[in-house]
Design a protein around this nucleic acid. Structure first.
Length: 816
RNA sequence: GCCCGGGUGGCGAAACUGGCAGACGCAACGGACUUAAAAUCCGUUGACCCGCAAGGGUCGUGCGGGUUCGAUCCCCGCCCCGGGCACCA
C-alpha cells in the first residue's frame, strides 16, 4: 500500500460524525459477561466553553477508558452537566436571558466540543442536573433526610448584603464586602436556614478513610481529616456569679482540650455572638458588642488584632473555686466548641497574647517533665507536662489529669468528656432561583410540612423576573408561593430557598448507572455491580467540598437502603492544574485558553497528545503551546510509516529482531505506565522512540515484521489518539473499532537485549565502558572490566582495594 | 506560623527511587533536497578546559554539610516557588 498523507481535518470530522451516529459504540454492556470498570470524570459546569483544564481532565479519563476496553473490561464512561448555579442567574440578570436557555445552549455547545475531541462517552447516560427529571430526586432524597432528622431548619448567623437584601455564601464575600457591591460591607444576620447533619457522620467519614486510603492521594485524605478536625477534650461549666433577671443561676460552658491546665485559667472569654454576651453587655457595652459582631476585620484572621473587654461579671472555676472575670473576645469563635473558652495564658499562645495585652494574670500550672515550673514566663508552655499548683491533682501528668478531671466533671454534673469537630453541619439554603427548590411548605397550622412524594417534583417556575434586587425571584412569584398545606388543606406558602448546587454533584455518578429511572433516583440492584467507582478523576480543587459531600451522601443513601457501599470512589486521581504564566486560569483573570483553535489547526489527536505529553498528569503545567507542532509531526511520521508498511508479505530482514526488540520493549513500557503511574508523557515518548527505530530499520525489515509492527503501533496509539488510530485501522483493511481490539501483549524474550553496555567506574568516576552478553555473571563482568585496556591504564600503579559489581548495571573498582 | 508538593540544559521534561544525569519533544545551529522559500530528511547542541586532530580532563540536578565504593534519589540545616490550612481552644 502506498504511503498516505495525514489530513487530520478530514479524518477527524469523518470519525466524529460516525461516532456521534452510533450511540451503542461506547455503551456499557452491563450483563456481567465481562468484568466491569467504571471510569468517572468530574462533570463540568456548563459555563459556555471548554477550557484546557477540562481537556486535560477528560483526555486522561478517555485514555484510561479506551485502554480498559482494550484490556477486555466492560467499561462505563459517562458524562453530564453540573448545570445549576449562580453564573446562569447572573447572566440572566445581565442579559435578560433565562438561565435555562443560557444553560441549555451552553450544554449544546460544550457537548459538541467534547464530541469533536473524540471522548468516548456513553451519551445515553447523560445527566443534566437542572432538569426536573434529575432534581426531583434531590428533593426526594432531601425528604428522606428530613424523615431521618438529617435535614433540619434552624436559625443561624449568615452573611447578609443590605444592598442585595439577600444572603451570600461565604465564597461570595470578598474582603468583608458583597461581591456585587464591592463597597457594601456584609452584615451578620440571624436567619432560618436548612442544614444537613453531616456532623452526625463525622466519625464514619474519618473511620472509613481506611477503605480508600490506598486508592486516594494522601494529600486529599489529610485535607479531609483536617477539615473534619476531630478533637478530644472536656466541657466544663463555670458558674456565673449573680442570678439573671428571673433569679436563676446561670453557667458558662467552655470547651477545652487541656482541662489539666484549668487551675491556670485567669478569665473566661465569650464569643461576641454568644447569647450570654448580649445579656451581660448592657448600656455602653451593648454598642461595643454590636460593633465587634459586625467588625469586618474578623473575616480576615491573618490581620485580626485580638481585642476584648471586661463585662463586669465574674464566673467560678468548678475545680478550684476561684472567681475569674468574664470577658468578650473577638478571637473566640461562636461556631466552634461551645463558643466560650477559659483562658489559660501560661499554657496557650493565643490566651497569652490576649492576657498580656490586657494585663490579666498569667499563672503557670504545668511544668516540663524535665524542668521547673516557669516563673514570669515570656511565652506560653503548650506541651504536656506535670501538673502543679492544682490542688489535689498536683503531681499528675497532663494525660492523666485530663482523663481523671473529665471523669470528675461528669460524675459531679458540671461537665463531661467531649469530642468536638471543626466540621459544621452543611448549610444548603440558597436564596436564589437557579437551583433545586426545597420541597417544603409552610403552614400556619402545621408549621413546616414536607411535600409528599407523589407531588414531586416541585418544579422551578419558568416565568420569573430577574432584577438582581430584593428577595429571591421565587419569593416574589405568587403562583409559586401560594399553595395548600398537604396536611390540613389550608392555605400555605412554599419554601422559596433552593439547594446548594453541591447537592446535585453529590450523587450524580449513581444516576448515570440508571439515568432514566422514574420510580427512584436509581435502582439499587442496577447500581450495585458498578460500585465503588473504579477510578474517579478530577481537579484537586474539589478535595474537600465535593469529595467530602459525596462521601457523606453515599453513607446516607446506604442507610436508606439504596446502596451497599460505604464509600463511592475506590480510587481517586487528582490531576494537576493548567496554568498560564504561573497563574490559575479563570474567567475573572481573563486568561482562559480555548481548545478550539488548536483543534482547528492541528486536530483533536494532536491536542490530546500534547496535553498528555507536556507533563505527568498529576503535576501542574504551565500552558505553553510552542511544542505542539512536535506532536503533529509525530502523528504525521507515524501515519506515513504505518500506511506504507501495513501490507505484509514473505521473507526475512536483517533488522527484524532489532525492530521487534524495540516493539516489545515499547509495549512493556506503555503497559507498565498504564498499570502503575499513568505517566503518559513517558508512554508517548516511548512510542516516539519506537517510530524513530522503525524508521531507522525500515529498509532492512521483512514485510511480515513491518506488517506486525504497523499493526501493533496502531493498537498502542489507540488510547491516546483515537481518530488517527481508527483511521489507520480501517485504512489497513481491518475491521471493528480499534479500541475494542485486544491490547497487545509483549514477549520478554523478544524484548531482551543481547548485549549490554556496562559503565566502569574507578573510585566512583566513570572511566570506560565494556560490552558484555546479557546475562553475564558477576565474575565475567568483573573480569571484562579489569581486562579492558582503558581501565587497565587507569589502574596503573595503584592497588585494587575492592570491586563492586552490579550485574547488568555497573562495575566500580576501588583503588588506593 | 503549620501541613503537603516542587526546584535538573535556552524551554517542557526523563532517569520506573542508591548505579552511565539530561531519554523523548521544542527551540537553536549546520548540512541535504529546492531556482527560492516552506515542508521533509540527516547531523550537532549542559558548562568550562587541554589538543591541529582522534581524543582526554574538570565541573554540573536550588544552597551548605553528612552517610556511602557510588547520591537528582537517603539524613541534617537553610533558601526560593506552588498549593492547602490558619486564632478550631
Amino acid at each position: 500500500m502506498p504511503e498516505k498523507p495525514y489530513h487530520h481535518q478530514d479524518i477527524e470530522l469523518k470519525w466524529a460524525e460516525r461516532w456521534a451516529a452510533d450511540p451503542a459504540l461506547y455503551k456499557a454492556v452491563d450483563d456481567g459477561s465481562k468484568p466491569r470498570y467504571y471510569v468517572l470524570e468530574m462533570l463540568p459546569y456548563p459555563s459556555g466553553r471548554l477550557h484546557m483544564g477540562h481537556v486535560r481532565n477528560y483526555s486522561i479519563g478517555d485514555t484510561l477508558a479506551r485502554y480498559q476496553w482494550m484490556r477486555g473490561y466492560d467499561v462505563m464512561h459517562p458524562m453530564g452537566w453540573d448545570a445549576f448555579g449562580l453564573p446562569a442567574e447572573n447572566a440572566a440578570i445581565k442579559n435578560r436571558r433565562h438561565p435555562a436557555e443560557w444553560t441549555h445552549s451552553n450544554v449544546a455547545h460544550m457537548k459538541k466540543q467534547l464530541q469533536r475531541l473524540g471522548f468516548a462517552y456513553d451519551w445515553d447516560r447523560e445527566v443534566n442536573t437542572c432538569t426536573p427529571e434529575y432534581y426531583r430526586w434531590n428533593q426526594w432524597l432531601f425528604l428522606r433526610m428530613m424523615e431521618k432528622g438529617l435535614a433540619y431548619r434552624k436559625s443561624s448567623l449568615v452573611n447578609w448584603c443590605p444592598e442585595c437584601s439577600t444572603v451570600l455564601a461565604n465564597e461570595q464575600v470578598i474582603d468583608g464586602c458583597c461581591w456585587r457591591h464591592e463597597t457594601t460591607p456584609v452584615e451578620q444576620r440571624e436567619l432560618d436556614q436548612w442544614f444537613l447533619r453531616i456532623t452526625e457522620y463525622a466519625e464514619q467519614l474519618l473511620d472509613d478513610m481506611a477503605q480508600i486510603e490506598a486508592g486516594w492521594p494522601s494529600q486529599v485524605i489529610t485535607m479531609q481529616r483536617n477539615w473534619i478536625g476531630r478533637s478530644e477534650g472536656t466541657e466544663v461549666d463555670f458558674g456565673l456569679k449573680g442570678p439573671d433577671q428571673k433569679g436563676n443561676a446561670q453557667k458558662i460552658r467552655v470547651f477545652t482540650t487541656r482541662v489539666d491546665t484549668i487551675y491556670g485559667a485567669t478569665c473566661v472569654i465569650l464569643a461576641p455572638e454568644h447569647p450570654l454576651s448580649k445579656q451581660l453587655c448592657a448600656g455602653e457595652l451593648a454598642a461595643k458588642l454590636k460593633a465587634m459582631v459586625d467588625d469586618q476585620g474578623r473575616k480576615d484572621p491573618e490581620n485580626l488584632v485580638k481585642e476584648g473587654f471586661f463585662t463586669g461579671h465574674f464566673a467560678v472555676n468548678p475545680y478550684s473555686g476561684a472567681e475569674v472575670p468574664v470577658w468578650i473576645g473577638n478571637f473566640v469563635l461562636w461556631g466552634y466548641g461551645t463558643g466560650a473558652i477559659m483562658a489559660v495564658p501560661a499554657h496557650d499562645e493565643r490566651d497569652f497574647e490576649f492576657c498580656k495585652k490586657y494585663s490579666i494574670p498569667i499563672v503557670p500550672v504545668i511544668r516540663p517533665i524535665e524542668g521547673e515550673l516557669a516563673v514570669n514566663p515570656t511565652e506560653a508552655f503548650t506541651e504536656y507536662g506535670i501538673m502543679e499548683n492544682s490542688g489535689e491533682w498536683s503531681g499528675l501528668t497532663s494525660e492523666e489529669g485530663r482523663r481523671r478531671m473529665s471523669e470528675k466533671a461528669e460524675k459531679e454534673g458540671f461537665g463531661k468528656a467531649s469530642i468536638t469537630y471543626r466540621l459544621k453541619d452543611w448549610g444548603v439554603s440558597r436564596q436564589r432561583y437557579w437551583g433545586t427548590p426545597i420541597p417544603v411548605v409552610h403552614c400556619k397550622t402545621d408549621g413546616c410540612v414536607p411535600v409528599p412524594d407523589d407531588q414531586l417534583p416541585v418544579v422551578l417556575p419558568p416565568d420569573v423576573e430577574f432584577t438582581g434586587r430584593g428577595k429571591s425571584p421565587l419569593a416574589n412569584l405568587k403562583s409559586f408561593l401560594e399553595t395548600t398545606c398537604p396536611k390540613c388543606g389550608g392555605p400555605a406558602e412554599r419554601e422559596t430557598d433552593t439547594m446548594d448546587t453541591f447537592v446535585d454533584s453529590s450523587w450524580y455518578f449513581f444516576r448515570y448507572v440508571d439515568p432514566k429511572n422514574e420510580k427512584l433516583p436509581f435502582a439499587p440492584e442496577a447500581v450495585e455491580p458498578w460500585f465503588p467507582v473504579d477510578q474517579y478523576i478530577g481537579g484537586v480543587t474539589h478535595a474537600i467540598l465535593h469529595l467530602l459531600y459525596s462521601r457523606f451522601w453515599c453513607k446516607v443513601m446506604r442507610d436508606i437502603g439504596l446502596v451497599k457501599v460505604d464509600e463511592p470512589f475506590k480510587n481517586l486521581f487528582t490531576q494537576g492544574m493548567v496554568q498560564l504564566h504561573g497563574q490559575t486560569m479563570s474567567k475573572s483573570k481573563g486568561n482562559i485558553v480555548d481548545p478550539d483553535e488548536m483543534v482547528q489547526k492541528y486536530g483533536a489527536d494532536t491536542c490530546r497528545l500534547f496535553t498528555l505529553f507536556a507533563a505527568p498528569p498529576e503535576k501542574n503545567m504551565d500552558w505553553n503551546e510552542s511544542s505542539v507542532e512536535g506532536q503533529w509531526r509525530f502523528l504525521t511520521r507515524l501515519f506515513k510509516w504505518v500506511t506504507r508498511n501495513a501490507d505484509g508479505g514473505e521473507g526475512s530482514g536483517e533488522t527484524d529482531s532489532r525492530a521487534l526488540r524495540k516493539l516489545h520493549q515499547t509495549i512493556r513500557k506503555i503497559t507498565s505506565d498504564f498499570d502503575n503511574r499513568w505517566h503518559f508523557n513517558t508512554s508517548i515518548a516511548a512510542l516516539m522512540e519506537l517510530m524513530n527505530e522503525l524508521y531507522a530499520c525500515e529498509a532492512e525489515m521483512s514485510p511480515a515484521v513491518r506488517r506486525e509492527c504497523a499493526e501493533k503501533v496502531i493498537l498502542l496509539l489507540a488510547p491516546f489518539a483515537p481518530f488517527a488510530a481508527e483511521e489507520l485501522w480501517e485504512m489497513t483493511g481491518r475491521t471493528g473499532p480499534v479500541f475494542k481490539q485486544q491490547w497487545p501483549g509483549f514477549d520478554e524474550e523478544l524484548a531482551r537485549e543481547e548485549a549490554l553496555e556496562i559503565p566502569v567506574q574507578v573510585n566512583g568516576k566513570l572511566r570506560g565502558r565494556i560490552t558484555v552478553p546479557n546475562g553475564s555473571s558477576k565474575e565475567e563482568q568483573e573480569q571484562a572490566a579489569l581486562n579492558d585496556g582503558k581501565i587497565k591504564a587507569n589502574l596503573d600503579g595503584k592497588s585494587v582495594v575492592k570491586v563492586i559489581c552490579v550485574p547488568g548495571k555497573l562495575v566500580n573498582i576501588v583503588v588506593k
